[in-house]
Computed example of a mutant assay.
Amino acid sequence: MRLSAEQIAIIKQTTAEVFGDEVNVRVFGSRLDDDARGGDIDLLVESPCEIESKVDKMLTLTARLQRRIGDRPIDILVIDPSTALNPVHRHAIQTGQRL
């Protein structure tokens, strides 16, 4: 995984601040490939409870992460029990590594 221990800690802490302690966060996509270079950080936030203001919280998380780990592209998917899963969600669930 091409994230440092510090970046992982920041992602976990910031996600909990924005979405609460009950959520899980996974990294998926190119950051899992140790031989790749560059690329964005793809995150999947999974909640067992319905999330109010999903888009607002997703934007807040993106902004805080960019401030804390550097201005780099970050893509965030958020799923809760009300989310209709599409192929991207399923791929992230199946291939993502929980932080």
Rank of each mutant, 00 (worst) to 15 (best):
N86I: 11
V45L: 11
I11T: 11
V18I: 10
R72M: 01
I11E: 13
V25M: 08
R90Q: 11
L43I: 02
L59Y: 07
T83E: 13
Q97M: 04
I93H: 04
I11A: 13
L65V: 03
D21V: 08
D42P: 14
Q94S: 12
Q13W: 03
G20W: 01
I8W: 06
Q13M: 02
V23G: 03
L77N: 09
A36Q: 05
D21G: 03
I10Q: 14
T60Q: 13
S4V: 13
A92M: 12
L3G: 05
P73C: 08
I76Q: 06
R31W: 14
Q13K: 15
Q13F: 04
K54C: 05
P48N: 01
S53D: 11
N86G: 14
L59C: 05
T14S: 09
K57A: 05
R2T: 00
T60D: 09
D75N: 13
M1T: 10
G70T: 00
I79T: 11
G70M: 00
S30R: 13
A5F: 15
K54N: 05
M1Y: 07
A5I: 11
I10P: 05
D80K: 06
I76D: 06
V23W: 03
S53Y: 10
D75R: 09
L3V: 02
D35N: 10
D40G: 12
E50V: 13
E50C: 09
T14A: 07
E6N: 12
R64Q: 10
L77A: 06
I79H: 13
M58P: 01
E6H: 14
S4Q: 12
I74A: 13
I79S: 12
G96C: 08
A16R: 15
D33H: 04
L44I: 04
G70C: 03
F19L: 00
R26P: 02
I74F: 15
R2G: 01
V88W: 01
K54L: 03
D40C: 12
S4K: 15
A92V: 07
E52D: 09
T95H: 10
R72L: 01
Q94A: 14
L59A: 07
G20Y: 05
L61P: 02
I51D: 00
I8E: 10
R37S: 07
I76T: 06
I10H: 09
R67W: 00
D33Y: 03
V45Q: 09
S47V: 01
L61W: 01
D33F: 06
Q97E: 05
L65N: 08
I69E: 00
V45N: 09
R64L: 14
R37Q: 08
Q94N: 12
I51F: 01
T60N: 09
L61N: 03
